[in-house]
Nucleic acid binder design. Structure first.
Lengths: 207, 207, 207, 207
DNA sequence: GATGAATGAGAATTCATTCAT
DNA sequence: CATGAATGAATTCTCATTCAT
């Protein structure tokens, strides 16, 4: 690897494209979408400004790519679990754990994304174009939908009350994200996943 | 008031200051803090650019004022209920309702605020200065803290399990906000408040 | 004068006009012409913004008036001495003293003026209009001309070498101003005036 | 260099940076620091606004660079002469000539600078930041100090009276600058340098 | 492919001046 | 006369994007 532009810089064996993505992740996470500048990204990626535009049509699409590459493996794991043959309760707790892990790992980036996306209701939007926004939103919807699927299964099997599974899944999702973003998760992520699931299933009332 | 510059413009009897605040609310809600421009605000407020700077020291402080004027009555109502002599359960449900109402009414603006504030973890933040951010955060913390107070009361009285009241209040808060932002609240806000409270207390398990 | 707006503020017996001039002196001296703002002047003058424009057509003319009112008594004294029957040498030294006093007293304001005036060579000048600039310049020229008159007298009487009296007077003037602005003048202004005059007359060569 | 974008504009072989500096010199000289606008500079430099900010961090630093690039060769020449082994009298006259040349060449720019710097005494100064002001002032102080060095040498060698060398150098400096700015220097700069030196050494008294 | 100099649309902010009360 | 709210022209600076090498 790196056997020839040997001259300067520690030859970075990641492809230029990956260097840029890594740097972009860093900068977007720290600064948010607007405050992140292409200048800062290329400085960190140790590349030229034009190079960014060779690989990505613009800043917006760079951000989009970043999200997609993070989201896909997560989503795949989620689907796999949701569609497995495990008991409903176990599925749920495992999925809570997957969510927790993912949002803790990507806390800063997703904080940013969630603003750009869920933030703005609809109309006049110069920066993030509607098409993209819709795609982002679909990512969320699909992930949260996996929770919904499990809730439906539980209701069908008579395990859960006859709740609105959509509301339930958004609620559970919001709680998980809150734990991730507020750093409520301590050493033991399993315990935390269990806690959340338990309260969601049984409530906080003393019996 | 305004009884004679009848000539042009529908005589706007709101004070200039209020016109600006109203316009700012509109624009910040639609665009978010960064994408909102003073130019757009004055266009909507039908006023001159300088006028904005007569009333507000800068864009940031305009935003801040907006938030404060919305938040204060809400916070007052919240505290009153939290400190009342009502039964714990009733307090909780009423507070959930207050939260729901407030965040539904101010959904767009608070979506924006929540990013600007809770959004970016810590470091380099040019736009919203640390001092202000801290104040915003305190608003949230105080409000959520009122929920915590009631949870503590419930735990002390043996009504609730021995939960972490801080985690519990952030969780309940996130669920409420989710309902408000996702427009999960239908005609009957009381019913929705009851639903949320009920699930939070009793969980979704079928018994 | 002012015997009845007795209500608020310690009734300032100076006329509004004078209050404004005094405040303007203060602010122009501290900030320079450009950085001085009408807002700061009225704050200090404890008056309304419109009032300034009742008495002075604009900021520029306010500055001009200020200069004139300071300059006139000085110029009068200067002329009187230049045209007196005192011995040439004595005249010269006394005039140096008058200059020193005047420029020490008005150091800050005249620093500002000297930039606005002598500063800009000629053409495009939005702020200080050519007519005014010319007037300011004439003030200087007349004052310095008084020195020239005395030099001419000295040359005519065979006291001085056959120097260019114009160059000589500008030079002496510049030295005086340097002493005033650099605060080279200590307790005894007479001694300083004597020193300057002495060196100008006799040079620094050891004999 | 510049051998092929032959198409439009007279191919300006100066670098963009230099074009901007040249234009800035022109505009600052004509308008002074405050009244000079970046817009006018770029119009003259035939460049884009952003380009200015690629090369110079802001307007202030552009001005600073301008000064430094002019001042350095001058200062070097001055030091060289002051530290040479030439006779004191010859040193002095040569240095007067160097000053004259420099201030004649850069009359407009230095008129501007001298106000921005020596101008305002101390306090509230928004435009030119204290750090920079101090640097500018040091430039002057060092240059004038070179005159002081020679005066001291003269005093030590018994050539000059026991004068305050600091006052003397500021005085001589002010006279030189006056000649330069007032365009008192005719064809023969050597003659003018001699005249100034002569009067400074021997005074104007007829013997 | 990689580069980075050049660009200019866009944004926040300032402040002298006006004018209705 | 005195006032000060309202105004907008003017100014500095930012940063995504382009394009010639």
């Amino acid at each position: 690897m790196g056997h020839n532009n040997a001259a300067n810089h520690a030859d970075d064996s990641r492809s230029k494209r990956q260097q840029i993505l890594d740097a972009a992740y860093e900068v977007f996470s720290r600064k948010g979408y607007n405050r992140a500048t292409v200048d800062e990204i290329i400085a960190l990626a140790d590349t030229g400004k034009g190079t960014v535009y060779n690989y990505f049509v613009n800043k917006e699409q760079l951000f989009y790519t970043l999200i997609q590459e993070r989201n896909q493996p997560f989503e795949k794991a989620l689907i796999k679990m949701a569609e497995s043959e495990k008991p409903t309760m176990e599925k749920l707790e495992t999925m809570v754990k997957l969510f927790l892990q993912f949002y803790m790992e990507n806390a800063d980036l997703y904080r940013v994304l969630m603003h750009e996306i869920r933030g703005l209701s609809s109309d006049v939007l110069s920066t993030v174009k509607p098409e993209l926004r819709e795609k982002y939103r679909e990512d969320f919807t699909r992930s949260i939908g996996m929770l919904g699927k499990v809730f439906k299964e539980g209701v069908d099997r008579g395990l859960f009350r006859d709740i609105d599974t959509n509301k339930a899944s958004f609620s559970l999702f919001s709680v998980i994200v809150t734990f991730a973003f507020q750093k409520f998760v301590d050493e033991d992520i399993n315990a935390t996943a269990h806690l959340i699931t338990d309260v969601f299933l049984n409530g906080i009332t003393q019996r």
